[in-house]
Design a protein around this nucleic acid. Structure first.
Lengths: 146, 146
DNA sequence: TTCCTTGCAAACGATTTGCATTGGA
DNA sequence: TCCAATGCAAATCGTTTGCAAGGAA
């Protein structure tokens, strides 16, 4: 199996930060790259345990966030889920189910994204806020819970 | 001091749910109505303690959320902040500071909000998702942290 | 009086950390 | 080799809950 472009990008980023890309860290990145949305430490542990113990998953998530490979997503009940950062996967938004709490990624057409971006710029300027990013969170019921 | 329209609306909603509007609950609603953004239990406790103990604040927040007077906002480090629900204060979006973690409310012009709403509708439809609400979260640095 | 609410302290669950051990460049 | 990374268990921290006492209708 060939090494994916994504893995190579992560390798390079870690190298730049003098951080090792170990087995456990590879396993976490791999699991997240296959997931259709953010995942919590516990959810990852379900897949990776006992090969990667929970405490190592937490440490891995912290390190990968620090170097900008992962981005956190804050969910209900104090759960923090992580996903690959947007420079690796592209910009997207979230569909959050108010029943089961699942979070799915959605892409939107470039033209519409452009409209959102310009709106964000206007709002931020007006509020003297230095915007660096934005997310449109759409709450509702997923097809399974509807 | 006259009883504000907001307090009267809350009173009625609680009455409809057979829930008492006690001193402690009034204090929490009052504190949140003065805050320029969502507040956590701990932040409220700083203001209201020892008159209202922390555990009561948590219970109050849970009750007020249940009857739809408050809406939760999930912040970094597992902190949940609450604010008055939009039917009391109007629809708005959030400016989230990536340095200090503060969250401020922003209103946007009706015309632009209409554009966001229609975009949300399109995205949700395309994804077979039953949207009930949305929030545009703008991340960046607040004027104090910039 | 009758429940709903409250206060306190103990319990919980997610996350973090100390420390000795292991493993990768 | 040598220090970063790991595994385990204990410690933290935000939040929840059991239970007895207090308060509003």
């Amino acid at each position: 199996m060939v090494k994916s472009a994504l893995v190579r990008q992560v390798e390079q980023r870690l190298r730049e930060h003098d951080v090792r890309f170990t087995q456990g860290r590879r396993a976490v990145v791999d699991a997240l790259s296959r997931a259709p949305g953010p995942r919590s430490a516990a959810e990852l542990s379900d897949q990776l345990s006992p090969a990667v113990p929970l405490s190592s998953i937490y440490r891995t998530l912290a390190v990968l966030e620090e170097v900008g490979v992962l981005a956190p997503h804050l969910g209900a009940k104090g759960l923090t889920r992580f996903e690959l950062a947007e420079w690796l996967t592209g910009h997207h938004h979230h569909l959050v189910c108010i029943d089961c709490g699942s979070v799915a990624d959605v892409d939107i057409p470039a033209g519409q994204e452009e409209r959102v971006r310009s709106l964000v710029t206007q709002i931020a300027e007006h509020a003297s806020f230095a915007a660096t990013d934005h997310t449109l969170e759409i709450e509702g019921r997923c097809s399974r819970c509807a």
